[in-house]
Nucleic acid binder design. Structure first.
Length: 113
DNA sequence: CCACTGACGAGTG
DNA sequence: GCACTCGCCAGTG
């Protein structure tokens, strides 16, 4: 649970809710953007989840790497940042495996609430 | 205040 | 399974 970080607005934002949900994803499991949105009380707001995560900075201790898209793939960033590679490495080090197409078998690793 | 911007998802052909 | 469209809306400048 991340309630605060340098530079974060003092008032509560939708992002805090999202960060709280992401922070509760167990290691070795993954959640989809849409799933996080629902758990955060914003069904249908998958895009906002992605937007919220993209605005995170390194010092914020949120396990953003455990969030993937509905197809079990790691979504590609804009600007060609290497964050997607880091994400895969972190997941693999947690025991999450990928198939030959670079997708995670959601039937085995999706976080069941 | 207005316009633009996204780590997405579900539906359709 | 792939390509395309449309709906979502908080933040940012």
């Amino acid at each position: 649970m991340v309630s605060e970080y340098p530079g974060m607005p003092t008032v509560a934002t939708a992002y805090q809710k999202i960060y709280a949900v992401v922070s509760s994803i167990p290691g070795g499991r993954v959640a989809t953007y849409g799933q996080v949105a629902r758990l955060a009380g914003m069904p249908g707001q998958a895009r906002l989840v992605g937007y919220a995560l993209s605005s995170l900075h390194d010092r914020v201790p949120v396990p953003w790497h455990r969030v993937v898209n509905a197809r079990g793939e790691i979504s590609e960033r804009s600007g060609g940042s290497p964050a997607d590679v880091v994400q895969r490495l972190r997941l693999e080090s947690e025991g999450v495996s990928f198939d030959e197409l670079g997708r995670i078998p959601l039937g085995r690793f999706l976080w069941d609430v």
